[in-house]
Every structure is written in C-alpha cells, then in structure tokens.
Computed example of a mutant assay.
Amino acid sequence: MARFLKNKSKSQGAAPGSLIFIGQQKMKDPLLRVVQYNNESLKEEHPKSLTGIEKYIADDHVTWISLYGLHNTKYIEQIGKIFDIPSLILEDILNTDERPKLAEDEKHIFIIFKTLSYNPDIQKIQIDQISFILGKNYLISIQESASPYFEDIDKRLASGLSKIRSYSPDYLCYALMDTLVDGYILTIENLGSDIEAQEKQLLTADKKIIEDIYRYKTELSYIRKNIRPVKEVMTRFMTSDSDLINDRTLNYLKDLKSLVTQALETIEIYYMMVADQQNIYNSNISNNVNDVMKILTIFSAIFIPLTFIVGVYGMNFEYIPALKYHWAYFILWAVMLVIVIIMLLFFKRKKWI
C-alpha cells in the first residue's frame, strides 16, 4: 500500500459527506473516555456507548471526551448527530489520509492533526491521525488507536497544579497539540541521529549506504508532507475570531507555531544533509572507479612499447638484425626492463602513481 496516498477506492463515486473510513483499522473495538475537570475536582469515566454523552457537559467544568477507534463509522455518525457536526467534517475525520487542517463554524472549531513516531525496528516513520472538535466547555478528541499520546497531559491534570485545570478547553486543545508537536521534534531528532551517524561510513563503497540514503530521503519527505500543513493550521487558529478561543491562549499558540517552524527548518536541514551525503557517496564511487582506470592505464602504457618490441621480433622474416646473435635474447630483456623502469620513474615524477 502506498504511504503518500492511501487507497480511496471505497469512497470512489460516493456522494460528498459520505461517512466512509479510509485507512487501516488499528484496534478491534472502540473505546470511550470522559474527563471532567475544574479547579477543584477531576473526574474520569469510561462510558460503554455515546448514548447520553451530552449529560457530561456543563458550564461549571470542562469536559474532555476521547474516542479511540476511528474505524467505527457508527460512532462518528452518532457524534455528528449529538453535537451537530457537518457531514463534510465527519467525512474528513474518517479519512486518515486527510492533510492537517482547521475548519470552523458557529459552534465548533475542527482540527485534524497527525502524530509521528520513529520505529527503529522497521526504520520507518509511523503516523496516526487525531482529530479535535472544540466546542463550548468541551473538547472531543478522536484517535485511530488507543496509543497513550497524551499520558503527560493526564499527569498534569491529575496533579492539580497545571494551568489546564483553570483554563478553558481551547487551552486543553493547545496542550494536546503541543504534545504532538513535541513528538515531531523528538521523531526528527531520532531520525537525524541516524543520518548524522552515517557520515562516518560515507567513504566506504558499501551498497547499504545508498539504500539508507534513499530511505532517509523518503522518510523525511513523508514527515514534511504531514508537518508542513500544521503551520497553516497554527496561523488559522491564531487569526480566528471565534469566541471559543481565549485571548490568553494566543501567546501559547504563537510559541507553538514557532516550534512547528523549527521542526520544518530541521527537516529541510536534514534533507539537504542527506542530499550532500548522496553526492559524497557518488563522488567516492567515481573516485574509486578513476583509481582503477588509472592503474589499468598505467599497465597499458607500460606494455605498449614492450608489445611493440616483441611484435617486431616475432615477425616471420628470415633476416632480422641480431636475430641469431648469441646474447640477443638477454639484451632484449634488458632493454625492456630499462624501458619499464624509465616509464615508472616518469610516472612517479608526474605523481601519477
């Protein structure tokens, strides 16, 4: 299956807004988790279904609803009906090949984000899609799997000392995105360490090096494809005039945008570094070939006059000077040896050997 563009044959010809899951199912059954919090309290529940989920939302606390298992279209459809979410947005949420984006209406802000992780065993970047639906006093996060991407946020909430407990849900949304962007930096750092470590092996003609170079270029392109739109998301988030975004959250969003820019710049640096490594490798291969050709040329140049002499005295003429001379054979060897020595000295003087 292609990594840069997923198979959309299921949705081919479907009407706009059709709820069709595009991607790979990563867990068997969907899970629900509801966290309610304010300055004084923190409560967590795990409902069996979405029925009555709206009862958890109130003005005196923030509600964070997490759905794990994006493949279940019935759950996504039910969320759309309960919270009045347009079908086109739900369609984008179900498409795991959707680029990171931000959309909004009068009641909600919708954000599609990507997670990045580097798997050293298969030496590939793995990506999950996470969608956020920001509403009044609540935030809904929808994940492909139950991977604990927000474990640190849970700890901050449990400690009771975090700003999250006293801020509105837009700050929670920022905190979750900040965690994902931190993951971008860590993933790029891990991949970059492998790229930098490869520099020591560039002067060898190992075929595996060029294979690794092409693999690194592919992985960097894959990361860039999924991170580049995030900068646009941050810009739209900061410039939105929605009442759901508190002014004090804007400064944090500016910092997050700067972090995304740093990630993109680092990707470009490593991409150029890999391109330079490829050029160095190709130059090294060319130099090795040139060294071989130089040696072969030297041998050829030495044997040209020797072959001429042997060819002349190998002709079938009856009268050839010194042909019947007693010491002619040894003199011929001496002459050829002198020619070889003179040519080697000449090549050495020219620094060709």
Score class of each variant (00 low, 15 high):
317 F>M: 05
65 I>P: 05
339 I>R: 04
29 D>H: 14
217 K>D: 06
205 A>N: 14
327 W>F: 15
202 L>N: 01
115 T>W: 01
242 S>K: 04
138 Y>F: 14
83 F>Y: 11
300 S>A: 14
212 D>V: 02
292 V>N: 07
282 N>D: 09
138 Y>M: 00
57 I>N: 07
127 I>R: 03
174 Y>T: 00
257 K>G: 04
338 V>S: 09
22 I>T: 12
159 S>F: 11
43 K>P: 06
102 L>V: 12
108 H>E: 09
207 K>S: 12
84 D>M: 10
27 M>Y: 06
270 Y>Q: 03
229 P>Y: 00
122 I>F: 11
309 I>L: 15
323 L>S: 12
16 P>G: 01
74 K>I: 13
338 V>H: 04
187 T>R: 06
161 L>T: 13
227 I>N: 00
329 Y>T: 10
204 T>S: 12
225 K>R: 13
259 L>F: 04
293 M>E: 07
90 L>M: 11
119 N>L: 04
185 I>W: 02
275 A>P: 04
35 V>F: 04
181 V>E: 00
321 P>N: 02
290 N>E: 06
209 I>Q: 07
275 A>R: 09
238 M>R: 14
305 P>L: 00
68 Y>W: 09
26 K>M: 11
233 V>M: 03
103 A>V: 12
136 K>G: 05
1 M>W: 09
63 T>P: 05
74 K>A: 15
113 F>S: 04
201 Q>P: 05
111 I>D: 01
133 I>H: 01
69 G>Q: 02
201 Q>D: 14
321 P>S: 03
147 S>Q: 11
71 H>E: 09
19 L>I: 10
320 I>R: 08
162 S>I: 08
106 E>V: 11
124 K>Y: 07
213 I>W: 01
131 S>W: 00
161 L>C: 02
226 N>Y: 10
309 I>H: 12
8 K>Y: 14
224 R>Q: 15
113 F>N: 06
123 Q>Y: 07
176 L>Y: 06
53 I>K: 08
286 S>E: 09
79 I>M: 05
96 T>C: 02
32 L>D: 08
15 A>G: 09
315 M>I: 10
223 I>N: 00
326 H>Q: 15
94 L>Q: 10
264 L>Q: 01
6 K>F: 08
204 T>V: 05
316 N>L: 03
159 S>N: 14
171 Y>P: 00
300 S>L: 11
343 M>A: 10
229 P>K: 04
273 M>A: 11
49 S>K: 08
166 S>D: 00
